[in-house]
Nucleic acid binder design. Structure first.
Lengths: 342, 342
DNA sequence: TGCTTCTGCTAAATCAGTTTAGCTAACCCA
DNA sequence: TGGGTTAGCTAAACTGATTTAGCAGAAGCA
């Protein structure tokens, strides 16, 4: 094992040429008049020495580091973070880049630290991600530089990548109407705060719009909707119990996310009701549990991997302003059936 | 906004001193005889200009980049990956470092690419992580360098960080015996492959050892155990159904992980049995679903965040060889009760 | 033959820091 | 008065690449 990495100077010496020549040849520069023989010798020398350029040295000169920053508010809370990161990693690798990551935990001083640490390392661009689809204020430090918002929007002109929640709402509601559900469709997960404050959620209102549009197109509308403080299983459980106490039981229910649906399943099971025979259920996110539930939950999948990928591509393409809506495919599982005849 | 970053030369000029002086003062070098006045002027100049050193330039000279690599086989599959990364990020920040991440997807050429990309960027050390606790072969390229294995062990002398699965097994089984369960304790999730091949899993055999030790200490042993191809909900479901077909029903069941337990819950619910009145359930991992189940699942938590943190600390401490076992705390929820009297 | 043009290549500057070696002036002491 | 310290500071080399400016020799042409 050679303990010292070969440098460009080593390659040049072995090839019997100057560093300049070696550099130009290895970078495939056009318009140099270096001979075919020189090319051959440089490539051979580089291969023999296992030469790899020192990125620090290169970026010192070129101001390019082949490195992107991925800064998010929270990574651990949801499993989706991993998907976004994976998509970003994949795309970055395809473009010969690497990802520096940091999380701010919603703390401004951490955020400042993270951004500066990244800029100190000459990153070529920043992906600024939110774990819940929402509007946010972009730190001033980022404004002049190549930045893409991931799963987030802002009032600035920065490019952003978002899931197409409205289309998903349409798809989810249509799945019920197409199965024959009409006037007894319920919604679990209305939430004033999420619907009104884009800094809390952009998804809630978009999903709702899509749902209402689809139902209107089918000549119907929501029979009843239940509000939830938050979108966790316990809230879905409580919401379903309250639905079941009403005089007419819905034939189908739309849950604003899979965790609510999970709670709804629990309440249905407790009440001795079966999905989908007694009630169809459809939802959003395609969390892992959607596939684990019995029967499998039909749900519009958050395309997080795809989004991470698009963010990197947008960043590297140098787009100045662009809003990229990534479709949310409906995963059809066994939770939807035709409504039982009256 | 200044478009150009201030450099050390700018700071030096403004302070009326040489780059050498500015560098030494900002780095807090001992033994230089620079005056208090010089210190004052340099700090003032640096603050006024908002000076931040260029890490690329610095690492070119010092061979230190204040950057660590986090290379894992898979990031997205489990939510735990996020926890490990979060812990690592936290610890890295505390030591003024930043994390470059990459995933190999179990593909050797990706792995090679990732390692080289990291070394090209002069990382100060590498955390090589596996998403399932197991033994692995460390790529030769890493052998000479500062490396810590995370959630993995190897036959080499590298330091590693692992969850203490045996202690967890002991704790989990003890939770049942302490509640009074004795001779009707079942185990779901025996798996030859996982138990025998350390490259597949180190957890399976360690958990089993802990369980058997705890039961022996309580003067009993497993009444029955069910094998599972894999540790997914559907396997737990099938396993529980098979248990329920046996003549004597267990009073308590240990599942090898939470996903199995989730499936077991489903089978119990279908059979009209209640947790914990009809059967106590206890498990491993503390997946999010453990808290979502009704009743909440008692489970030994994988301390992934803690592990990520320890890995960074081990790496930065320069330990040459060290095996760090991180305890798995038992999260007590409502899934355990005394066995019903015969 | 003398001038230009082209071919094939290289020396040296540059990026932004760190580090080595050493300089100058003041001071101490005999 | 002169030699040795010491305090306080700096010039220049160095890290490993890229890039600019330009040189030597051959070929082309009148």
């Amino acid at each position: 094992m050679s303990h010292r990495r070969a440098t460009l100077a080593d390659v040049a010496k072995r090839a019997g040429l100057s560093k300049t020549a070696a550099s130009m040849i290895l970078n495939g520069r056009e318009g140099t008049r270096l001979s075919a023989e020189a090319h051959r010798r440089v490539f051979a020398a580089a291969a023999e020495l296992g030469y790899r350029p020192n990125v620090a040295a290169r970026s010192l000169r070129t101001q390019k580091s082949l490195t992107l920053a991925f800064i998010s508010d929270i990574v651990a809370t949801t499993r989706f973070a991993g998907d976004m990161i994976r998509g970003a990693l994949d795309a970055a690798r395809e473009h010969d880049h690497v990802l520096l990551i940091a999380e701010t935990q919603g703390d401004e001083s951490f955020e400042q630290y993270a951004i500066e640490a990244m800029l100190d390392r000459q990153v070529d661009g920043v992906i600024y991600a939110a774990m819940a689809t929402r509007q946010l204020t972009v730190p001033a430090t980022l404004l002049g530089r190549p930045t893409v918002l991931l799963n987030a929007a802002s009032t600035t002109e920065l490019p952003c990548v978002l899931p197409d929640d409205e289309q998903a709402g349409y798809a989810v509601a249509s799945a019920l109407t197409e199965a024959g559900h009409r006037d007894r469709i319920a919604l679990i997960g209305r939430n004033r705060l999420k619907e009104r404050d884009p800094e809390v959620s952009l998804a809630a209102s978009a999903r709702l719009r899509g749902i209402e549009r689809a139902l209107a197109a089918a000549g119907t509308r929501l029979a009843v909707s239940v509000s939830c403080h938050d979108w966790l299983p316990e809230h879905g459980y409580a919401a379903m119990r309250s639905l079941l106490r009403k005089p007419t039981r819905p034939t189908g229910v739309i849950c604003m996310n899979d965790r609510l649906a999970f709670g709804a399943y629990q309440a249905l099971a407790e009440a001795g009701l079966r999905v989908p025979q007694d009630m169809s259920v459809v939802s959003f996110d395609d969390d892992v549990i959607a596939a684990w539930l019995r029967p499998g939950l039909s749900t519009a999948a958050l395309p997080h991997e795809q989004m991470g990928r698009r963010a990197v591509e947008l960043l590297l393409s140098g787009a100045k302003t662009d809003r990229c809506l990534v479709p949310m495919p409906l995963r059809r599982r066994a939770s939807i059936d035709s409504p039982a005849p009256q």
